[in-house]
Deep mutational scan, measured.
Amino acid sequence: GTEIELESKNGQREHYTATSEDEARKIIEKAVRRGIKRIELRGASEQLIRDMQEIAKQIGLQYRTDGSL
């Protein structure tokens, strides 16, 4: 699965493990709508990382991946 670590603007951290790319995408989209400061992805697919970079650029988000592409 993909591990997703979120940090909201007030510094609250949340951790999710998505079993599918679809689920990961839903978690990320929800977080973005809620207003999130930072997202870290571990074990994400190349496609998901590309999507994440696109989203991050659009809304000026900090993100990090573990680089295991």
Rank of each mutant, 00 (worst) to 15 (best):
Q58M: 07
G43M: 05
E46K: 08
G67V: 06
S45F: 05
A18G: 10
K57H: 13
D66Y: 01
R50P: 00
Q62S: 05
T2M: 11
E5G: 08
R42N: 06
A24Q: 01
L48F: 06
A31G: 04
R33H: 13
L48P: 00
L6D: 01
L41D: 00
G67P: 05
Q53G: 06
Y63Q: 15
Y16I: 11
R64G: 15
M52I: 15
D22C: 11
A56H: 03
A18H: 06
I59L: 15
V32M: 15
I4S: 01
E23M: 10
Q58W: 03
G1I: 13
L6R: 00
V32N: 01
R13P: 03
R33G: 12
A44G: 09
L41K: 00
A56N: 02
V32E: 01
A24V: 08
S68A: 05
V32K: 02
L69Q: 07
D51Y: 15
E54C: 10
K9T: 13
I36M: 07
Y16W: 10
Q12H: 10
T17S: 11
A44Q: 03
I59K: 08
R13L: 14
G35T: 02
T19N: 09
Q12P: 04
I55K: 04
T65H: 07
R34F: 03
E5V: 14
I27L: 08
Q58F: 04
V32A: 08
R64N: 15
K57F: 07
K9N: 11
H15P: 01
K9Q: 13
G35R: 03
I36A: 08
R42S: 10
K57G: 05
K9I: 13
A44K: 01
E23S: 04
E29T: 06
M52Y: 03
G43H: 10
L6P: 01
E46W: 03
Q47V: 07
Y63S: 15
R64D: 15
A56K: 02
T65Y: 05
A18K: 03
S20L: 03
E3V: 10
R25A: 06
E54K: 09
R50D: 04
T2V: 13
E54V: 10
R64A: 15
R33E: 13
E40V: 14
Y16E: 02
R38P: 01
K57I: 07
S8D: 14
R33C: 14
S68R: 04
I39Q: 00
E54S: 07
G43C: 11
R33M: 09
L69R: 03
D51N: 06
E5S: 13
T2P: 10
G1C: 14
G60A: 03
E5D: 13
Q12S: 10
R13A: 05
T65Q: 06
E5C: 14
V32F: 14
K30G: 13
N10W: 08
I39T: 00
L48Y: 01
R33V: 13
K9S: 13
R33S: 10
R25G: 01
E46T: 08
I39W: 01
E3D: 10
E54M: 09
I28E: 00
K26C: 12
I59N: 15
Y16D: 01
I4C: 03
I39N: 00
E3I: 09
A31D: 00
T17K: 10
R42C: 09
T17D: 09
L61T: 02
E7R: 05
G1E: 12
T17P: 05
A44F: 06
I27S: 01
G35A: 04
Y63P: 15
H15Q: 08
G60T: 02
L41F: 05
R42G: 05
Q47K: 08
I36P: 02
R33Q: 14
Q12D: 14
L41N: 00
S8P: 05
R33N: 12
Y63L: 15
Q53Y: 08
R38S: 11
S45V: 03
R25F: 10
L61P: 15
K26D: 11
L69K: 05
L6V: 14
R13M: 10
T17R: 09
G67K: 03
S8L: 15
A44D: 03
E14S: 07
S68D: 10
L69W: 15
D66R: 01
L41M: 09
D66M: 02
E29D: 07
I49F: 06
E5L: 14
Q12A: 09
R34E: 14
L61W: 04
I27E: 01
R13F: 13
A18V: 11
A24Y: 02
M52W: 02
I27D: 00
T65W: 04
R38Q: 06
G1S: 12
I4H: 00
A24K: 00
K37W: 05
I36K: 01
A31E: 02
N10E: 13
A24I: 08
V32D: 00
A31Y: 03
T17M: 08
E21P: 07
I4K: 00
T19S: 08
I27Q: 01
E3P: 02
E40G: 07
R38M: 12
I28T: 01
I36G: 00
K30Q: 13
E46V: 09
T19C: 14
K37G: 06
I55V: 07
K26T: 10
R42I: 08
G1Y: 13
I4Q: 01
S8Q: 10
T2G: 05
I49S: 09
K30M: 13
E54W: 05
I27K: 01
E5W: 14
S8K: 08
S45C: 06
E54P: 02
K26V: 12
R34W: 03
E40C: 15
Q58V: 07
N10M: 07
K37D: 05
Q62I: 15
S68L: 06
V32I: 14
I39L: 11
I28Q: 10
R50Y: 10
Q53W: 12
Q12V: 10
I55D: 01
R34V: 12
D51P: 00
I27T: 01
E14L: 09
E29S: 08
E7Y: 06
G1H: 12
A56F: 12
Q47L: 07
I39D: 00
